[in-house]
Amino acid sequence: MVEVTLWGSLAALAGGKSKVEIEAKDIRELFRKLAEQYPGLEPLIEKGIAVAIDGTIYRDTWSKELPQGAEIFLLPRLAGG
């Protein structure tokens, strides 16, 4: 079980919850279960969400494991120049 923190706009789509607990071993499973439990998140997950694991931001590595006790933070997928 990992605790996941959602940024403001995402929390609104998860029924106002800024923290949710999910049983997930990697980012792929996390996104799948988030979409199942909070269908409002699915379009944003499809568009792209970044996941910060202990401060390091992952945008596309859905196979990245979520270590027990790690800080998991969902962030908008940003543009760069």
């Binding site: 940024w7 202990d54 390091t56």
Partner: peptide
Amino acid sequence: RSSYGPVYG
């Protein structure tokens, strides 16, 4: 804890 959310490495 960064101002945008996660804790820094």
